[in-house]
Write a protein that binds this DNA or RNA. Structure first.
Length: 434
RNA sequence: CGGGGUGUAGCUCAGUAUGGUUAGAGUACCUGGUUUGGGACCAGGGGGCCGAAGGUUCGAGUCCUUUCACCCCGACCA
């Protein structure tokens, strides 16, 4: 992409309502803009990142044997009446009416829809297990949306549902998804922890959350430095008072509390702030029983499906990458999430030698299927560098005044290091780095 | 859903206590020129239903009423 032709409206100042780094930088760098409370538009850069994350999620799930579907976003209210959630979920569900005054709900989640879909189509234990997922828009009418993409009302989420003939098989799938999620978050380049979680109102026997470690996280988790124990503090402390008193709680008390739970390896425990980007649940037959979704077992007897459910906040991940990876100058995208891997900056567009080399490299990298931006704007060096840092390209090739000496520079966003490379070596060097 | 706050140029914000020329600044944008290694400089220019509706007044960005939107703290958040 040529920067001169791109739609990337960057600004020097952040809108006053943005308080978190991810919110400020994603807006300042022209990735997203706010449409209303908890509603965001994705501009070209934001859309690219969103699609990259979506593609990685899809790839790993497909590899693990899941099948992608797409459920309708607008759902008849009757679906929610049958499960009782039109009452229990209350105002979180946004209700709308059509021209016939029929009531509908914008899907906040899709347990009911998926059970209805599978019910009476999968009727034998021989057809199990089955794991279906979608990556689709959700709408939850949060009482107070905030923090940009981290807590929007409309958001992109991957939601998966599995069906099994036995609890053992359901647990097998649950463990498979835990491993699959680890692969996904690792590929995205994130520092994350898996923690025991509160099963909450959805019920079920087990649940785990995946947290991206970041100071701005809304959740507090306890992790052990010696084993893989981790837990959301909600599972350790029963009352609000205890959580409020957390700061005064002594280290020993925490240690004892946690040992009582699961960690007895003797390692050091510490508190961390986390952003919940994934959550997996063992559902059991809660929904299949309620909606009378049965299969026939080996003896021909009808039994409700054993189910599990798996979620990943895809649009939340976009913000999470930046919460974990930024500095005072802007975004630092991981290699897997960067909208463009390489930014070629022509320092002075009037300099014919610089422009010629820039164009040549641009063609060559594109031919090699490298995602590359060519900054061919008329602006000055400093302006273009600030812009590149704000956006957060992993590498910027600077074609500037050193070209006279046969040298160009590679600026690495993460380390802010500049290395000089001979012009004839630049292509091989950048291919080696990315 | 309780409590608090803010709506003025694309963006960040003055101006509103005490109503009174043609509503301002910075930034961004356009034109010309000078510049070209860290968000440049000079000159000129365009851009506003002062969130919306109603009211008070000779006169409203400013006062009153209604309403909409957004933000912050809290509660809530499979």
């Amino acid at each position: 992409m040529r920067r001169s032709r791109a739609f990337i409206p960057t600004t020097k100042e952040a809108p006053s309502e943005a308080t978190l780094p991810s919110h400020q930088f994603l807006i300042r760098a022209g990735f997203i803009n706010q449409q209303g409370a908890g509603l965001y538009n994705f501009m070209p850069l934001g859309k690219i990142v969103l699609e990259k994350i979506r593609a990685i999620v899809k790839e790993e799930l497909d590899r693990a044997g899941c099948s992608e579907v797409q459920l309708s976003f607008v759902t008849p209210i009757g679906l929610w009446d049958r499960s009782g959630r039109s009452d229990t979920m209350g105002k979180e569900m946004l209700r709308i009416s059509d021209r016939h005054q029929n009531e509908f709900v914008l899907s906040p989640t899709n347990e009911e829809a998926i059970v209805e879909l599978v019910k009476n189509r999968v009727t034998s234990y021989k057809d199990l297990p089955l794991n279906l997922y979608q990556i689709n828009t959700k709408f939850r009418d949060e009482a107070r949306p905030r923090y940009g993409l981290l807590r929007g009302r409309e958001f992109l989420m991957k939601d998966g549902y599995s069906f099994h003939a036995s609890t053992e098989d359901m647990i097998r799938e649950f463990n498979l998804m835990e491993e699959t999620y680890k692969k996904i978050f690792t590929r995205l380049g994130l520092d994350f922890r898996v923690v025991a979680a509160d099963s909450g109102a959805i019920g079920g026997t087990g649940s785990k959350e995946f947290h991206v470690l970041a100071d701005s996280g809304e959740d507090t988790i306890v992790i052990c430095d010696a084993c893989d124990y981790g837990a959301n503090i909600e599972t350790i402390f029963e009352s609000e008072e205890e959580i409020d008193a957390l700061n005064e709680m002594s280290y020993e008390e925490l240690q004892i509390k946690s040992i009582d739970e699961k960690c007895s390896c003797g390692g050091n425990l510490s508190f961390k702030k986390g952003i919940e980007v994934g959550h997996i649940f063992q559902l059991g037959d809660k929904y299949s029983s309620a909606l009378e979704a049965n299969f026939n077992d080996e003896n021909g007897k009808p039994r409700p499906f054993e189910m599990a459910t798996f979620g990943i906040g895809v649009s939340r991940l976009v913000a999470s990458v930046i919460e974990q990876n930024h500095d005072e100058n802007g975004c630092i995208w991981t290699k897997a999430t960067a909208p463009y891997m390489v930014n070629i900056m022509i320092s002075n567009i009037k300099d014919e030698a610089q422009t010629a080399l820039g164009e040549e490299l641009y063609e060559k990298l594109q031919t090699s299927h490298v995602e590359v931006m060519l900054d061919d704007r008329k602006d000055r060096f400093g302006f273009k560098m600030k812009d590149a840092e704000l956006i957060g390209f992993p590498y910027t090739i600077i074609i500037g005044k050193e070209l006279e000496n046969g040298l160009v520079q590679i600026f690495e966003r993460k380390t802010k290091e500049n290395i000089s490379v001979k012009t004839e070596d630049i292509y091989s060097k950048i291919m080696e780095l990315i």
